[in-house]
């Protein structure tokens, strides 16, 4: 059965189409245009076909090497961030109070990091981690740890990951909390009557009921962490060496630092495609796995 279309709706959507066209579609076409041409400035363009793409996807070239190196860094970073934030978010959500004054309090506390602009977050951690004046960096060194994110790649990675966990775990926690709140009380009562352990309650009730919000949380966190730019740029600037040079930072170096617009354009297209494909695959898999329950339910 089709919903009856309301033609007026198109009028309301029109401004959005216009904005999207100017802000996304036209720039995107420009990027596509750049990616198949070469330019030496002065607005002179030469047709280069798929040349940039070939170079980009061939790890033996200089461009390809840089691309794949930063792509792996991105994947490692997203993987690490998800592996920490999702379980942590779930744990925090489970630990949050269900009623009383504590609800509002913990919601506000959790929301605080989400309200801080990215570059400010970067700046906070950049200072916080400094071994000369930063509380964390200085403290760690005083405790005997040889911590210096400017010189040591592992320290740099740890700093960025901890920063991201600090910044974004609350989002996962809030989403999970919303999912948990929607579970009717009868389920918990039934589980306690069935003699379920705390772990069984988690795996048999809470996790399945949180599934939908977890899909959203994972998607959001993947996209966001895969596109990370501001914070590592502020904290490490991509260093030490290239150890925290993610695709986005590489892209900016290429486009604005070296003015290789063609290469940068090709890289951004591939970058975008990777994100779209990963999200699409993930979303399809998760929703298909959930779709089988639709057939039985629902009043017609």
């Amino acid at each position: 059965m089709e919903k009856i279309p309301n033609q007026k709706a198109w009028l309301l959507v029109l401004p959005v189409f216009a904005i999207v066209a100017f802000s996304a579609v036209i720039p995107l076409m420009t990027v596509v245009n750049y990616s198949v041409q070469d330019t030496f400035g002065n607005n002179k363009f030469f047709w280069n076909g798929v040349g940039w793409y070939q170079e980009l996807l061939d790890p033996s070239t200089e461009l390809g090497g840089r691309f794949f190196a930063s792509l792996w860094r991105n994947l490692a970073f997203s993987g690490a961030v998800l592996a920490i934030q999702i379980p942590l978010g779930i744990i925090v959500a489970l630990a949050m109070p269900r009623e009383g004054w504590g609800v509002a309090f913990s919601l506000v506390v959790l929301a605080l990091p989400l309200l801080i602009p990215w570059n400010v977050v970067g700046t906070i951690w950049q200072i916080f981690g400094r071994s000369d004046i930063g509380l964390m960096g200085w403290g760690l060194n005083r405790l005997g740890f040889d911590y210096n994110y400017v010189a040591n790649p592992i320290d740099a990675w740890l700093t960025i990951i901890i920063m991201d966990v600090w910044h974004w775990s609350s989002l996962v926690a809030l989403l999970c909390y919303a999912g948990l709140k929607s579970i009717p009380e009868a389920y918990y009562q039934a589980a306690s009557i069935d003699g379920a352990s705390r772990w069984a309650v988690f795996t048999a009730i809470q996790l399945p009921k949180m599934r939908h919000v977890l899909v959203i949380a994972i998607l959001l966190r993947f996209m966001d962490s895969f596109m990370i730019y501001t914070e590592p740029f502020v904290v490490t600037g991509g260093g030490p060496g290239n150890s925290t040079t993610f695709l986005s930072i590489e892209l900016v170096k290429l486009a604005l630092g070296q003015f290789d617009l063609g290469k940068a354009a090709a890289m951004s297209i591939v970058y975008m495609l990777i994100i779209i494909i990963v999200c699409w695959v993930f979303f399809t898999v998760m929703t298909n796995a959930g779709a089988d329950r639709k057939g039985a339910g629902g009043e017609r």
């Binding site: 009717p184 389920y187 009562q189 039934a190 009557i193 009730i205 399945p208």
Partner: peptide
Amino acid sequence: TTQQRNIAQVFQFPVIYDTM
């Protein structure tokens, strides 16, 4: 506790463990 009393209860709306 409910569990220690060793009773069983059936609720108004079906309570099902979805994954099982």
